[in-house]
Design a protein around this nucleic acid. Structure first.
Lengths: 183, 183
DNA sequence: TCTAGATATATCGAGACGATATATCTTCCT
DNA sequence: AGGAAGATATATCGTCTCGATATATCTAGA
């Protein structure tokens, strides 16, 4: 079976409890979005494909005129999810506009390049704070499954590390004289 | 002016010296690819657009029947690049399939989830080693412009931090008993 | 009663990625 | 000298992805 990584996000999300496309999107936005996002434009077509492949099963959960289909994982779907989890991860990408700007900052004065570092640092600190505030609810949500909390804490730590790096680079840019005159 | 971030990568790359599309691709692959990639499918159309907008200028550098156009940045292009560098960075994304797998690893036994962490760790250590080996040539290439080297070293540090995190999480997964029985 | 916002599904255009087609040039081995 | 392999150079294609938006219903509260 050859599925996109986004297909596995969906499989994983419905493996915990049956969910509608809307609920999957909300779950992704609240959890994996920081290292793997998914849009409606991916989710709905993928739900159809997975349903046709027999990996998930749609269950009507309409209320009155409000149509809704919740999808549950099947035995085949669970097997496929486990297979994927056991295969080594491949994709690992990053897009950081701040680093890109820093890379080309030679045409600016150091005092200007420092601004990029300050913005990056603020963003990372803010994100770390936001993620940290999610810890309690994540810990309560599913105490038997510690992996989401582990990943969440990893996110906090990463963002704090990044903020610290920005701070150190800022200091380095502002005192270049020491290295220069010593040797 | 409203340009894509990839357009600025191109502007930045030709601001150092005139380059062909092929040379830009090679330069990106050797440097910014780790936090901002660019494909031929983006580069060639973008070179046309930037040329039409007067931000870069094509200079014929053909040799015999082998056609080649090198692009140099114009005064307008330099102004546009600096403007962009002074604006705060926006995009910051990450796609890490390993973290995604870890997130859903509750359906596996801990001994299996550990494999994902081990693979991630190995990949990060290998990348850190590869980046570290580029430091000398990067330092020599343009001693007057320290930013590329700063970013490169940041990459080394980031990958080493990540590898270390994987190692710690692995240890945590293999000895969960201590926490359990203490309180 | 009215309105704002949440729930739910679906689709569109723009952009990006990876792979590949085409062609020429250079290098190096036999 | 011949020939293969690989580097240089430009271009394009299909697929995937993103963000925004259209449509419609339901809920909560002013």
């Amino acid at each position: 079976m050859d599925l996109s990584a986004t297909a596995y996000v969906i499989l994983g999300m419905v493996s915990r409890e049956p969910r509608s496309g809307y609920e999957i999107k909300a779950a992704v936005d609240g959890t994996t979005r920081f290292f793997w996002a998914a849009s409606y434009g991916q989710i709905y077509p993928e739900l159809k494909r997975l349903s046709e492949a027999g990996l998930i099963e749609g269950v009507d959960a309409s209320q009155g005129d409000r149509k809704r289909t919740r999808y549950a994982i099947t035995a085949d779907g669970t097997a496929e999810l486990k297979d994927w989890l056991r295969r080594p991860p491949e994709t690992a990408e990053m897009r950081e506009e701040g680093l890109l700007k820093l890379f080309f900052s030679g045409v600016l004065k150091p005092a200007e390049a420092v601004e990029t570092l300050r913005t990056m640092r603020q963003r990372r600190l803010e994100l770390a704070r936001r993620l940290r505030s999610l810890e309690p609810e994540r810990a309560e949500a599913a105490p038997e499954d510690s992996y989401p909390l582990m990943v969440l804490r990893g996110g906090v730590e990463f963002n704090e590390w990044f903020a610290d790096w920005c701070e150190r680079m800022e200091a380095q840019l502002l005192e270049p004289a020491i290295e220069e005159g010593s040797s």
